[in-house]
C-alpha cells in the first residue's frame, strides 16, 4: 500500500532522514521505532507532505506522492495525527472532527447550506468509538492532555483514511493511559480494517501489537521485519544500547 524507498531530507547541513525505507501492506499495523532524534517525525512529515524529500520515492497505492501538497495526500487516503497536540483549540470537540468529515465529504466549500446538520452521524460515531462523545460540546482547548491526544486520532479518523499515520499517539501519557490508548488503536484497526503506521517509544507496547517494526537510527533504516526478527537483530541492539 505504501512504499518508501531511499528517502532523504536534510535541514541545512544536517541529514535528518538519510536513507529510509519502509513498506506498509494493506491491513497491517506497522511501527517505526528509534531513539530520540532518529528522524521518525521527519519521515512521517515526508510521507504526509508537510515536508518534501530531497531524494527518494514515496509511493502510495501505485502513485508517487512525494511532491504533492498535504491536502492532496489527505484526499488520496492518508490521514495523520501529530506528536505535539495539533487540534483546533477554539472549536468544540465535535467541531474538530466535523471539519475533517466535511472535508472528507468534499463539502468544505459549500456556501449556502447550514453546517450544523452536516456530517453529524459520522462525527458522532467517531466520537463515540473513541469515548469522547460526552465531551462533544466542550471547547477542544479545555480538554485534558490525554483527551486532546485522543482527539488527535479522532480528527484523523474523520477523514476515513485508508492509511492512518500516528506520530507518537501516546506522547506525554501515563503508562496506564498509554496502554489504554494503544488498546483503542488496535481495536480500531481490527474493527475498521484500518492500515496503521505509527511510532512509539514504549517498546513493550510496540512489540505486543505491531505486525511489522521498522527501526530508524540517525536517519537511516536499520531493518524492517517481524517483532521477533527485530528483537534478534544485532545492529538494533547496538543502536539501542547507544554507541553514539
Amino acid at each position: 500500500m505504501l512504499k518508501v524507498e531511499g528517502v532523504e531530507k536534510s535541514f541545512g547541513e544536517f541529514m535528518a532522514v538519510n536513507g529510509a525505507d519502509l513498506t506498509v501492506g494493506k491491513g497491517e499495523l506497522v511501527a517505526v521505532i528509534g531513539p530520540n532524534g532518529a528522524g521518525k517525525t521527519t519521515l512521517f512529515n515526508l510521507i504526509t507532505g508537510q515536508l518534501k524529500p530531497d531524494r527518494g520515492r514515496i509511493v502510495f497505492r501505485g502513485e508517487e506522492i512525494a511532491s504533492i501538497p498535504p491536502y492532496e495526500i489527505c484526499k488520496r487516503g492518508i490521514a495523520r495525527s501529530f506528536q505535539i497536540v495539533n487540534i483546533f483549540p477554539r472549536l468544540t470537540v465535535f467541531g474538530n472532527v466535523q471539519v475533517a468529515v466535511i472535508s472528507q465529504q468534499r463539502k468544505s466549500n459549500t456556501l449556502f447550506h447550514p453546517a450544523q446538520g452536516m456530517a453529524v452521524e459520522e462525527t458522532n460515531r467517531i466520537l463515540e468509538s473513541l469515548g469522547l462523545i460526552d465531551k462533544a460540546w466542550n471547547t477542544a482547548g479545555s480538554l485534558s492532555h490525554g483527551d486532546q491526544r485522543i482527539l488527535e486520532i479522532a480528527i484523523a479518523l474523520g477523514n476515513d483514511p485508508k492509511l492512518l499515520v500516528l506520530d507518537e499517539p501516546t506522547a506525554g501519557m501515563s503508562p496506564e493511559e498509554t496502554s489504554a490508548t494503544m488498546g483503542l488503536i488496535k481495536g480500531l484497526a481490527q474493527e475498521r480494517g484500518l492500515t496503521i503506521l505509527f511510532c512509539e517509544h514504549d517498546m513493550d507496547v510496540v512489540f505486543r501489537i505491531a505486525r511489522s517494526i521498522m527501526v530508524m537510527h540517525q536517519g537511516r533504516t536499520l531493518i524492517q521485519g517481524k517483532p521477533q526478527q527485530v528483537r534478534e537483530n544485532e545492529e538494533v541492539m547496538r543502536a539501542y544500547l547507544g554507541e553514539e
Binding site: N86, R90, Q98, S108, N109, T110, L111
Partner: peptide, 28 residues
C-alpha cells in the same frame, strides 16, 4: 449564512490551525 455554512466553519478551523487544516484535506 456564509458564517454558518461549511465554508464558514472551515474558515474558523483555518484561523485556529492552518497546518492541521491542510492535514485534513483542506486547500488552505
Amino acid at each position: 449564512l456564509i458564517f454558518k455554512s461549511p465554508f464558514g466553519t472551515t474558515l474558523l478551523a483555518i484561523r485556529d490551525n492552518p497546518q492541521r487544516c491542510e492535514a485534513v484535506g483542506i486547500n488552505v
